[in-house]
Structure formats: structure tokens, C-alpha cells
């Protein structure tokens, strides 16, 4: 312990967390002084805060809630806003963050999704949109259909980066055209009625870069191609690809470096052709 602190400049560093106790309650900032260790990430900071159990003012606190799964930037669950930028907590390294901003580290939940608690958000809308565009290859039988069509090397190379998407939502958080949709349950509303209302609200909002990119992925799959028109139609509905404003933040913040703007332009081209078909091939 003393070795560590003697080799480094700092013993502790400040962390400010935007907390929220429940979806209905107000957000509030809480400051923590965290003991420095080399090679920390945001996850280990949050664990330290949990084990300490008190804020920098000495107030007893409940542990900060956050989502996580894989801890190796593959699942996307721990996505949050760190020092004003959206990223995964697991791959946000403290040493690098302190270089960027030595005074403090600021953690807040993603701003485009409803907050469940502290840093945990409800990203249901992402999965709603993936369902809307049928982001999969449908297999409607259990019988042996034989081998699928062969994919060329080029097709594989184009598809692989798109298949790396982990639906983390970074592209949506940074997108100026993707706005938060939060539907609150009415008094005495049934689960079904609430979910229906939520779905209708989601259908009006922008589908976002990740979903458009998945449409390109599955429309270029030799088997998935069979449903290409259906998927392109889905991204031409209200809240579809036409909402994109070409700010191109999506591709800049994507942790998997997915060529999202290339996907958007390709889907835009497909939508142009589909639009002409709809008008002139009637």
C-alpha cells in the first residue's frame, strides 16, 4: 500500500456520481474520495465506493447501482457517461481518465434512456427497435433445409464488423437526433396497457444508428436477404432512417468501431431505391 502511494502522485481522487434512488425520485450529485491504485477502471471505483459505504462528507450511503455482465467490453451493459462521454465502465481506465481530467471523474447515467436507479438505465427501446426491423435471419422450420448459400470472402469481411454490435447504446447517447422517450405508468394501468403505450411511443422516436446497421447486416446476409424489403420498409416508417441528421457522432463514439455511417448511407441508398419502387412499381 505505501509502496503504491509513494510511486504515484496521488493517494486519492474525487469521483462525482449522479444518483437517483428510483425512477420517480429526483437526481442528485454525490461526491466520493476514492483511494488510488494503479490499473483501476470505473468498475473497481464503483466497487470501492460500495465497500466504503460513505460519501466524502462521511454520510452513510447505499452502494451506487450499475449494470454489468462481461467486464470486457463485449456485452455493453455497463455503458454510462464518464466525464461527459458515453462509454463502457469496464474499459474506462482511471489512469487515462485522470490524465484527461485530473480534478475529478464524473459519472452519470446515459441521458437518452429512462433511469431505473443511479447508473442503471432501461434500454428496452433498443430491443424494441431491433424487433421492429427483424434483426435476425428467420428460420421458420425445424426440418433440415440443407446448407445455406455460400458467403463470399468480401461479404464476410463486410458483415463481421457489423456483427460486433453489442447494443450498448453509445451511438444513441451521442446522437443529437435520438431523444429520450420516457413513458411513465398511469395510476392503475395494467402491464399490458402500459407496455402498449410504451411501444407506441417508441415507434414514433428515431430508431438510431445501431438498428440501421443491423438492417444492413441482415439484408446482406444471403439468407437474411429474403426479408430485405420488409426490413427496409421498417426503417422507412415514422422515426426511420430519414431522421438521421448526419452528425456522425455514432461512428466516432462506437466502442467496437463499427462503420455506422457507412451502414446509414448504404441503408439510405436502399431506402431511395425502395422508395422509387413503392412509387413507380405499383
Amino acid at each position: 500500500m505505501s509502496n503504491h502511494s509513494s510511486t504515484t502522485k496521488r493517494k486519492t481522487f474525487a469521483v462525482r456520481v449522479l444518483r437517483k434512488d428510483s425512477p420517480e425520485s429526483e437526481s442528485y450529485w454525490e461526491r466520493h474520495d476514492v483511494e488510488y491504485e494503479p490499473d483501476m477502471n470505473i468498475i473497481s471505483v464503483l466497487q470501492k465506493i460500495a465497500s466504503k459505504g460513505e460519501s466524502s462528507s462521511g454520510k452513510k450511503i447505499a452502494p451506487v447501482a450499475w449494470d454489468c455482465n462481461c467486464l470486457e467490453e463485449v456485452c455493453g451493459a455497463c455503458t454510462m457517461v464518464v466525464n461527459g462521454k458515453t462509454r463502457q465502465a469496464c474499459s474506462s481506465l482511471i489512469d487515462r481518465l485522470l490524465e484527461e481530467s485530473p480534478s475529478e471523474i464524473v459519472l452519470s447515467p446515459m441521458s437518452k434512456f429512462p433511469v431505473v436507479r443511479d447508473l442503471v438505465v432501461d434500454r428496452k427501446r433498443i430491443f424494441h427497435n431491433l424487433k421492429k426491423v427483424k434483426a435476425w435471419v428467420p428460420v421458420d422450420t425445424y426440418s433440415d433445409m440443407g446448407p445455406g448459400p455460400k458467403q463470399s470472402r468480401q461479404q464476410q469481411e463486410e458483415a463481421y464488423p457489423l456483427s460486433e454490435c453489442m447494443s450498448c447504446g453509445c451511438c444513441l447517447e451521442a446522437c443529437p437526433q435520438y431523444l429520450k422517450i420516457e413513458v411513465t405508468r398511469k395510476n392503475g394501468e395494467t402491464d399490458e396497457a402500459f407496455e402498449q403505450r410504451q411501444k407506441e411511443a417508441y415507434d414514433k422516436g428515431f430508431i438510431g444508428a445501431n438498428t440501421i446497421s443491423q438492417v444492413v447486416l441482415f439484408n446482406n446476409n444471403p439468407t437474411g436477404q429474403m426479408n430485405a424489403k420488409e426490413r427496409t420498409d421498417a426503417i422507412m416508417q415514422e422515426g426511420g432512417i430519414q431522421i438521421c441528421g448526419n452528425a456522425q457522432n455514432c461512428v466516432a463514439v462506437c466502442p467496437k468501431e463499427i462503420p455506422l455511417t457507412t451502414s446509414i448511407a448504404k441503408a439510405g441508398r436502399a431506402a431511395t431505391i425502395r422508395g422509387l419502387q413503392r412509387i413507380f412499381d405499383k
Partner: peptide, 10 residues
Amino acid sequence: GITWGLWTTP
């Protein structure tokens, strides 16, 4: 050009 799908790659 991006919207209509004219230029696609970076």
C-alpha cells in the same frame, strides 16, 4: 449525398 446513398464509405 449520404441521405440518398450517393457516397457511403468514409
